[in-house]
Design a protein around this nucleic acid. Structure first.
Lengths: 327, 327
DNA sequence: AAGCGTCCCGTGAACGTTCACGGGAGCGTT
DNA sequence: AACGCTCCCGTGAACGTTCACGGGACGCTT
C-alpha cells in the first residue's frame, strides 16, 4: 500500500532540495530560519520520519549490541541485563534483548538471526564455541559466566572460590561442622560451585559429603532441602548453588520447623536483590551482577574498537561473602 | 581505520560478481554448488558480514520495536518486558529495550533517540502525550498502563476495580472490617487503585479512612505499614498499591509481632512471581503481566500494518483476585 | 565598479545491498 | 543446423539518506 514518505517528498512539498531538508532535520547551520520552519511543517504534515537504514548506511555511527539470555525472569539475568543496559546507555548504544527461554533451539535460532541485526553480541550461551563461531561469522562476541576456549571469543568470568571459602569460614566460625550443599546439575555434571565448596570444606578438614541436587526454582530448592535433610538430619548449615534455590530452602526449613538461622543456616550464591525480600534476609556469596553486565558491554566495545585486549584478570568478577540474616 | 569488508571485496577474491555472492549468502537457487562453496570460503576468509543497513534499506522486512520502561529491576516491568519479548519473538521481531531509570530526563532523551532506531515504540511513559507526540513525529506508539487521551496513541489499559472489589469482598467474608491501604503517590496525587479500594469499601458500608503512603520499595512498604499501624492499631487487614510494597508490609508485620494472616491479612496488587517467594505467599489482585506485554506488541503490530483498530475492551487487562497465603 | 566575504541552497556521488533483467554456455529435440 | 530450454552468472538500477562541493545572491569594502 502507501509508499514510504521519503526526504524527496518533503523537499517537494516544501519547495526545496533534499539537502535543505536534511539540514533542517539535523540542525546544520547553513539554513534560513523561515526555510527551516517551512521544511519542519512539511515534515509534520507528511508524517515523515527518516529511514534508519538509509541514515545508518551513510553515517556509520550507531552501534547496537545483542544481549542473549536464557530467561529474563530469572532474577540473575534480570540484574545482568539491567547492568548491561545501563552501561550501553552511558555510551549511547542500543541493546536488542533476546530471551531464548532456556531452549537450545531458540538459542540456535537467535544466533542465526542476531548476526544480521547487531554489531556485537553479548550473552549467556549454552552452545559450543564451534557452533557459535559458525553462525556468528567473525562478529565480536562476549561470553558471560563461562570461560572461552578459543581466543576468538571473549568472556566475563565469575570467580567464586575465595567467596565460597569465605562463606565456609564464616559458617565454621559460627560453630557449624556439618554443612551440606544444594547443587544444580545443569548439564548433568557437578557444577564448579560444588568444587569450590568441596575445596573450602576440605581446607577445614570437613567432608563435603552431604550434597543434594535441585531444580532451578524456588520449589526445586524447597524440595531438595527436604530430601537432603531427610538423608542428613544432622546438618546445621547448607550452601546452595544460587539464591533462587536458597530461597526455596528457606521456605522448606520453615515448613520443617527448622528456624533460620538458629536451627539451620543458609547461604546462597549470587547476592541477588531477591535475597533481601525474604525474611530472614539471605546471606549469600554475592556477585556484582550489574558489573557483570557492564563488563560485558565494555568488552564488546573494546572488540568493536579493535583495542588491545585486557588481561583476563580485568574481565573477572569476584564473588564475596555478603552476610545478612540467614547465618 | 581498516575499511569495512563489502560484498564487492568478497566478489573480487572469489572471482565472481556481487550478485553471485548475494545468491550464495541468501540461499537463492541460481548458483552452482562449487561456486557457492568458493564464495562461502571467501566470506569466511575475509570475515565478511553483510551490512544490516544496506540490507534493511532494500528489503524492508525486519521490524524493530522499542520498549521503554522506567526500571527493569522492578519485577512488574521485568514481567511485562518478558511478555513483550516473547510476543515479539513469535513474530520474528526485534526489541530494543530502554531503561530510563525512573528519570524524566532519561525518558526524554530516550524518546528523542528511539524515533530513529525503531519502527514502533511501546512502553510505560510518564511524559505528557503532547511532548511524546512532538518527538515521536507520527511513529506508532502504545502506552502501557495509562489511558490515551488523543486518538494519536494507543494504550493497554489495566482495569482493577472488579479485582479490588473481589479482594475486599474476600477480606470482609473472612471477617475483616478495619481494612487499611498503603498507597503510592507517584505524581503527588492519589492513585486510581486507591479509588478502586475506596469504592469497594464503600460498597460494604466501610470507611476507607486508614490510608498510608509508601515509597516504591520493600523498605518503603515496611516503613509505611509500621506508620499506618501506629496510627490505626485496630487494622486487621491491609491492601497495598502493589506487591513490592506488600512484601515490605509482610516483613514489617513480622517485625511487629503481627502474624500473617492471623493477626493481619495482606493483599497486594499485580500478582507478581515475587509474591510466591515470600512466606506466607502473598495474596494479590493479580494481573496477567505477560499478557500486558504481549498485547502491547500485538497492538504495535496492528498500528504498523494499518489494520483497523480493536475496541478498547480488547486492549484491556483485568485484574483478578489471586488468593495465596497472606489472607 | 570591481572585488570579496557571508549566507543560503542545490547537484552529483557515495554508502552496501538486493531486485529486475539480460544473456552466454551447454544440451537435447526436430 | 536451427531452435528451445535449463542452468548459471553479470550489469544497471533502486532503496533513502548524508557528504563534498559548487555556486548564486547580497552586502560591504576599497
Amino acid at each position: 500500500m502507501s509508499k514510504r514518505v521519503t526526504i524527496n517528498d518533503v523537499a517537494r512539498t516544501a519547495g526545496v532540495s533534499r539537502q535543505t531538508v536534511s539540514r533542517a532535520l539535523n540542525d546544520k547551520g547553513e539554513i534560513d530560519g523561515s526555510t527551516k520552519q517551512r521544511v519542519l511543517d512539511a515534515v509534520r504534515e507528511l508524517g515523515y520520519r527518516p529511514s534508519r537504514f538509509a541514515r545508518g548506511l551513510v553515517r556509520q555511527d550507531t552501534t547496537t549490541i545483542g544481549l542473549v539470555i536464557p530467561d529474563l525472569l530469572n532474577p540473575f539475568f534480570t540484574e545482568v541485563a539491567a547492568g548491561a543496559l545501563e552501561a550501553a546507555r552511558a555510551r549511547g548504544w542500543h541493546v536488542i534483548v533476546y530471551d531464548t527461554a532456556g531452549s537450545v533451539e531458540e538459542e540456535r535460532g537467535t544466533i542465526e538471526v542476531v548476526v544480521s541485526q547487531v554489531d556485537a553480541v553479548v550473552g549467556y550461551f549454552s552452545l559450543a564455541e564451534s557452533e557459535l563461531d559458525a553462525h556468528l561469522s567473525g562478529m565480536p562476541a562476549v561470553l558471560i559466566g563461562r570461560e572461552h576456549r578459543t581466543p576468538r571469543f571473549s568472556s566475563i568470568r565469575i570467580e567464586g572460590a575465595a567467596g565460597v571459602r569465605e562463606a565456609v569460614d564464616h559458617l565454621v566460625a559460627k560453630g557449624h561442622r556439618r554443612i551440606g550443599m544444594l547443587d544444580y546439575e545443569g548439564r548433568a555434571e557437578p557444577s564448579i560451585r560444588r568444587a569450590w565448596f568441596a575445596d573450602a570444606m576440605n581446607a577445614h578438614g570437613l567432608a563435603a559429603d552431604a550434597v543434594g541436587n535441585a531444580v532451578q526454582s524456588v520449589d526445586g530448592g524447597a524440595e531438595a532441602l527436604t530430601d537432603l535433610l531427610a538423608k542428613h538430619p544432622d546438618l546445621t548449615a547448607v550452601f546452595t548453588f544460587n539464591d533462587i534455590i536458597a530461597v526455596g530452602a528457606l521456605r522448606a526449613a520453615r515448613r520443617l520447623g527448622r528456624a533460620v538461622p538458629d536451627d539451620l543456616a543458609v547461604v546462597g550464591f549470587d547476592g541477588l536483590q531477591l535475597g533481601t525480600v525474604v525474611d530472614p534476609a539471605l546471606t549469600s556469596v554475592a556477585l556484582d551482577t550489574r558489573r557483570v553486565g557492564a563488563l560485558a558491554i565494555e568488552q564488546a566495545g573494546r572488540l568493536l574498537a579493535g583495542e588491545p585486549q585486557l588481561p583476563s584478570e580485568e574481565l573477572l568478577v569476584n564473588a564475596v561473602l555478603l552476610v545478612r540474616e540467614s547465618t
